[in-house]
Write a protein that binds this DNA or RNA. Sequence first.
RNA 1: GCUCCCGUGGUGUAGACCGGUCAAGCAUUAGGGACUCUCAAUCCCUCGACGCGGGUUCAAAUCCCGCCGGGAGCACCA
Length: 489
Amino acid sequence: MLEYLAPELLEKKKVVERKVLPDLPDVEGTVVMRMAPSPSGPLHIGHSRMAILNDEYTKRYGGRLILRIEDTNPLNVENYAYDMIREDLDWLGVKYHEVVIQSDRFNIYYNYAKKLLEMGKAYITLCDEKEWRRLKLSRLPCPDRDLDPSVHLDRWEEMLSGKYGNREAVYVVKTDLTHPNPAIRDWAAFRIIRRARHPRTGEKYIVYPLMNFSVAIDDHELGLTHVLRGKDHINNTYRQLYIFDYFGWKKPVYIHYGKVKIENSILKTSIIKKGIKDGNFSGWDDVRLGTLAALRKRGISPDAIRKYWIDAGLKEVDIVFSWENLYAYNRTIIDPVAKRFFFVWDPVKVGVKSREELIANIPLHPNIDMGKKVYRLGREFNIYMTTQDFSSLKENDMFRLKDLGNFRFDGKFIIFENNDLSLIKKLKIFHWVPENSIRCNVIMPDGSEKSGLVEPEISRFQGGIVQFERFGYVNLFMGDTISGYFAHN
RNA sequence: GCUCCCGUGGUGUAGACCGGUCAAGCAUUAGGGACUCUCAAUCCCUCGACGCGGGUUCAAAUCCCGCCGGGAGCACCA
């Protein structure tokens, strides 16, 4: 029907189509979501997925986003990471409405732990660790499991008061020992860690909640409606659901997205930490790393990262991260603002001769008026070209120096012939810089360094993302010297 | 080994629930072309996929079965 009446409407619909995330299921009332990083280090590109997706959804539904810092493992918490995570999120443009730090909430966890013991839904086992696990795999209880709740409550108090050493007693949540999936059967919820210093609570606590317990409690306490998490947490979700069932809580909607395989990048905090300590990496923002700090330094726009994750969606299939696609998104963002400069790597000095005074008038951007760079060069002067370009010339070859003119190579000098632009389709086009150019080192993503010369007019500007023609986009830092970090070509 | 999940071009994604309009769309990459000036941008063109085998059906990427392949978990990490 519509086809007859208004075929153009159907056409239009197709054109407007663009990539958006699917709607969240079961939305009623205010959407509340959370990001739950662990402060073991700053965020990397993998973490940014959960941050962006949560942000997108809470913004779409006008909901609330909670940053919950999961620091219940004192062995893996770094004091500096708390602030770094927040800086990374700010840079990403992720808006969170509340910050919750789990190490502030021990009493909440303890209270629920006690309740669960009273309900007979948890126990404290003194059994040998390996034996307990062996029995579990055989669907059998360890002897402690069926003791009266009062015994477990006593043991709980003893645990808290320090009667037991590390690993001597452990608090376990009962699930179903006959559950077909061994991963779901009785799971540990609190452990004892003595002689550890937590950056925020010091040695105040020795009984630490494990992730499944604190997460379940907090997801309820904070009133979450939707939980986005990686599919590596699927079994954890099943485990946590027991807590919701025991207390009769309303469950959030869980959505699990697939694993991301990120190649050609270093993401593991333990490796990075060691590398920094050993002096192999310059810091958390070493460009060889996949940290957000490193990407920021390279001039990757947070909006490119956002677009990338929206495009990837949240399917449960595993995906391979594509740097190419991220760069493509970044390019469309930075290209309209990146001023163009000539950067000559592997420079070689070349003598130029001309019958007339040469003046170069070079636009800062090919498509957008950003002004010009002007170089008065004279009749006889030197320039620099890349060794590669210059050595490709044979005697009497004609070629063009971009934005300067057409030249002939006489075997020693290059001779200005004309500035006839109609010839450019036939000539090779090279770039160049004047003799008074400035030294510039560019750090490549693999850590190697490209040294060269950048045209002097660059000093009028403050740095940031630029394009070095025929080289690539570079994030420049202007100081006593000019240094750059290669983004991509 | 056990439990669960998933398989659309190089990469990501749409379509699959409600079989036909899908001889499979979009984006990116790669290759080519255009462009009075970049190995950039823009525009145009090209290459490129329903894991395999059966079944149901007039009709299957879509439903069913088997196989193959990939992944997650089976931690007193998160």
